[in-house]
Structures are given as C-alpha cells and as structure tokens.
Design a binder for these strands. Structure first.
Length: 274
DNA sequence: CTAAGGACCTGTCGGC
DNA sequence: TGCCGACAGGTCCTTA
C-alpha cells in the first residue's frame, strides 16, 4: 500500500492530532511485526508528549524528549487517528492512546510493518544509509550520475534502490519511467545525461502530484484522516497491463523484474539496444 | 563492492 | 463450491 506519497499523506493526517499530545498508554495486541515491537514502550512513553511527527523515506518518526518512535507501514500497513471509541478489528496490532482522547492505531494484515524505538545516537541503523529524499535538492541529476557509475543494473531496480534515492516504490517507479520514456530494463550505464535528467524531474513531479492527491488508493488505503487518495485515477501504466497506452494507444506490456511486475509501453519506452 | 534471490505474512483472485 | 498457486504497495538479509 504505502509508497512515499501515502506515508507523507499519513504524516500530514496524523500530525495535527498527536503533536503535543501526551501518551496515556500503549497497547500492543500483536508484537510480532517485521520485528518485535519493543516490550517496554509503556515505561518509555507514558506521560511523554509527541514533540514532532516527521518522515524519512517511508519511515514515520515520532519524536519524544527521550527518543524516537519509528513506524514503518510495510506493504499493507495503515495508521489512523481515531477520535472516538472504535471496535478493534483483526489486524489492529498497535495503539497509542493519548490524554486528549485521540488514539493512533496501526493496522497491518501482512505484518511487514515495524514499530521501533531509538534513543541516544540518531539516526537509527535502518535510516543511516538511506539515499536522498526525492523531493529535496539533495536529489538531483548528480545523484543518478554518481550512483550509476560502474553499474549495469536495470534502471527500474536502480531507482527503487533506497541507497540511490528513497521513496520510489513499484508504482511510482513504473510511472516515472513511463513519463521519462525510458524502458525499465535499460542498464543504467547506457542512459544519457538528458534521459537521467528527465527521470529526476519525472520522479519529483509524480511524487509531488501524488502527495497533492492524497496518495494512491489501491484496495483500502486511507490517509491518517480516513480519506482515500485520488492518484489511482491518474496512473498511466501501473496496473494497466493489456490496456492501451494513453499516449500512443498501443497495448501496455508487462515484464517481471526482480520479482516485481513492471508495466510499460514498448512503443513509448524504447527497449535498450544491445 | 554489486547483484540475485529468499524471507517475512495474510488476503484475494483466477483457473481447474 | 472448493482447493491451489500466484500475486500484492517493502526491504532486510544471506549468498555468490
């Protein structure tokens, strides 16, 4: 479910409700997510207030005076703010109940998500080696030129590599490559400066628009405020295998790349010559 | 160092 | 209708 726009949408939805709120208690119903939820969160958090809700890559960071709570939504996670009592459902694994009657609830059927605690030295090990944020100036043409040196990896896998740039998952990687008219299999050492430049702009543009639309709702994604995202109707290639290209009407093709499906237009996105 | 593949887990969908 | 395999938004970890 969540790529960067969905995580950012979630951050914006929950922040106004929980920033400066004081933790009343933490409820863990299923501690085994991708990693075990730290067992002593109640001792750490009760009485503390959330100083800030931020985001790094697809990690949500809740800053407290004594450390940082890190939440990742994995593949199927969502976080919601509940303003009134709400029945607990099957995959509601984790709640933070605040003194202002707000509950922050993590739901995650596949349990690839994570809740981690980091204190002392920041950032957390998992955040330490991440590449630049795509929507900042830290991500530029140079990012790609430097990162592509001596590599022949397929461009789709390259832009999904978190050490190169963060936040580009399977949906937006496919969309950005279509926008930049680059075939997903193109080895990165064969991409021109101009094409890389177009790809940088495409990634920034598409992620930006997706955030404006409140993310992409597939299945049941809802932002922190419970509203769905509206980017799905703007997808050009993702999930459109067999349908016709919006630019040239040719039938969109699907290939598998690193065990992920990749839909593209073989006409608009030229196959690499070899 | 790079690259490839498995692993984690549940739900849903298509085919037989 | 039931069963089985394939696949789904992520990414760490192991192996070569």
């Amino acid at each position: 479910m969540p790529e960067l726009p969905e995580v950012e949408t979630t951050r914006r939805g929950i922040a106004p409700h929980i920033e400066n709120a004081v933790v009343l208690k933490v409820i863990v119903r299923q501690p085994q997510l991708r990693w075990l939820i730290p067992p002593h969160l109640n001792q750490l958090l009760i009485g503390q207030s959330v100083l800030k809700v931020s985001r790094r890559s697809k990690y949500l960071l809740l800053k407290f005076v004594n450390g940082e709570l890190i939440i990742h939504l994995g593949m199927s996670g969502s976080l919601r703010v509940l303003l009134s009592p709400n029945p607990v459902e099957k995959h509601d694994h984790f709640d933070i109940v605040f003194a202002n009657n707000v509950t922050l609830r993590l739901t995650d059927p596949r349990r690839f998500g994570a809740v981690l605690w980091q204190e002392g030295e920041l950032p957390h090990k998992l955040l330490k080696n991440l590449g630049p944020e795509p929507l900042t100036e830290d991500f530029s043409l140079d990012t790609f030129l430097n990162g592509a040196k001596n590599r022949r990896i397929a461009v789709k896998q390259f832009i999904m590599d978190n050490k190169v740039v963060v936040g580009v998952g399977n949906i937006y990687a496919s969309e950005a490559l279509f926008a930049a008219r680059i075939h997903p299999l193109t080895p990165v050492n064969r991409i021109s400066k101009a094409k890389f430049s177009a790809l940088v702009e495409a990634i920034k543009y598409i992620l930006g628009v997706a955030i404006e639309r409140g993310g992409t709702t597939l299945k049941d994604f809802v932002g922190g405020d419970g509203k769905p995202g509206y980017f799905a109707q703007e997808l050009q290639v993702y999930g459109r295998k067999g349908q016709s290209c919006n630019a040239c009407q040719r039938e969109l093709q699907e290939i598998r790349l690193g065990q992920r499906s990749s839909v593209f237009c073989a006409n608009c996105q030229r196959a690499p010559r070899r």
